[in-house]
């Protein structure tokens, strides 16, 4: 082996495979609204925005769950911070999306830094439980926030503006803005995963003792990833509030955290693009099965069990079996 740059072919192949999968997804997303319009079903554009927002959150969770083996069961809290950043700032007359996103990121960074620092003292099932506990604390905080409707939540009078423009006023505008943010954040996550930092994070997932034995203290890297993931999830919350034009603590209940984990697992852990597909699958099933029966969760449960049994690597695993995506090395 003489050429130092020609190495690492196997993982790089897996990475480009995923990049292609993501690209296909993004093209499909971009084509969806005109298609919905042609089919005279514009309602799908709004559902689509919801899917895109959850795709951002699922991808953010995958960054720590898939690449850092940190199963956060409290990630809905960050969705909540995002939605309430919109509601609270709007009530103060601040309607700008950029400012709302910055506020959501700031509060999420602080919350993630504090709760992450405590949670990361535990491992495995204890980590899951303690993140759940912190998530519930945030949930009950907003329940008791009577100025913003408490349990009932609060309706938003208008969607956010983007640097003074009414970009989000139409459903199409909101959809494509959310899509643009998803793509940008995907690129960000993809870069992080392939960076020095990402390699250390993945190394800690694979074998923390070995990482310590070559001079890394896992905690700092895990906490940093935890904060990044929380901040990205908060952005999803901001878009979700604009989609629903309604904000309530329901966005941050532990069911939501569970649904995010389901999306990640359904799509394929540690693939970034997979959880995006997982969000699409989970929310479309919810939509269709919900229309069929009141007891749709039962059918969804059966589907989930079958998926985990027959394709533990989720949708990504199915595609790999079909030979469409390349197997992760």
């Amino acid at each position: 082996m003489s050429d130092a740059t020609a190495t690492l072919t196997a993982p790089r192949r897996a990475l480009t495979g995923r990049l292609k999968a993501a690209l296909v997804l993004f093209v499909l997303f971009a084509l969806m609204p005109p298609l919905a319009a042609a089919l005279n079903d514009p309602f799908y554009v709004l559902i689509g925005t919801r899917i895109l927002a959850f795709a951002i959150a699922a991808m953010a969770l995958d960054l720590i769950l898939g690449y850092g083996a940190m199963v956060s069961f409290g990630h809905a809290a960050y969705l909540g911070f995002g939605t309430y950043a919109v509601a609270i700032l709007a009530s103060w007359g601040v309607n700008d999306l950029v400012l709302q996103i910055l506020a959501a990121i700031a509060i999420s960074a602080i919350f993630a830094l504090v709760t992450g620092a405590i949670s990361l003292r535990t491992k495995g099932v204890y980590f899951i439980m303690i993140t759940l506990a912190f998530g519930q604390m945030a949930f009950f905080f907003f329940i008791s926030l009577s100025a913003y409707g408490g349990d009932d939540g609060v309706a938003l009078m208008q969607r956010s503006t983007v640097l003074g423009m009414d970009l989000l006023k139409s459903d199409f505008g909101l959809y494509y803005t959310t899509l643009a943010i998803l793509v940008a954040l995907f690129v960000l996550c993809h870069r992080i995963v392939g960076s020095r930092f990402g390699r250390v994070l993945t190394g800690i997932r694979e074998n923390p003792t070995r990482m310590e034995a070559i001079g890394y203290s896992p905690f700092r890297y895990q906490l940093t990833a935890f904060v990044i993931s929380g901040c990205i999830t908060a952005v999803a919350g901001v878009m979700l509030a604009n989609q629903a034009q309604f904000v309530s603590p329901a966005f941050m209940s532990w069911h939501r955290s569970g649904e995010l984990i389901v999306m990640v697992v359904l799509g394929g852990v540690g693939t970034l693009a997979g959880p995006i597909a997982g969000a699409v699958a989970a929310l479309l099933l919810e939509e269709w099965l919900g229309a069929l029966s009141e007891h749709w969760k039962l059918f969804f449960g059966v589907f989930l069990v079958l998926m985990v049994l027959f394709s533990p690597r989720g949708i990504t695993g199915l595609l790999e079996k079909a030979g469409i995506a390349r197997r992760q090395e």
């Binding site: 190495t7 993982p11 390699r199 074998n207 001079g215």
Partner: peptide, 29 residues
Amino acid sequence: LPGFTTLENVALAVQAREGSSFRFFGTVA
């Protein structure tokens, strides 16, 4: 690190010695 290549296993050790691992953008490979 079982899921890493032989070279990556060693490169991580070099990286630990050689400087910052708080770099989020450049492709380490």
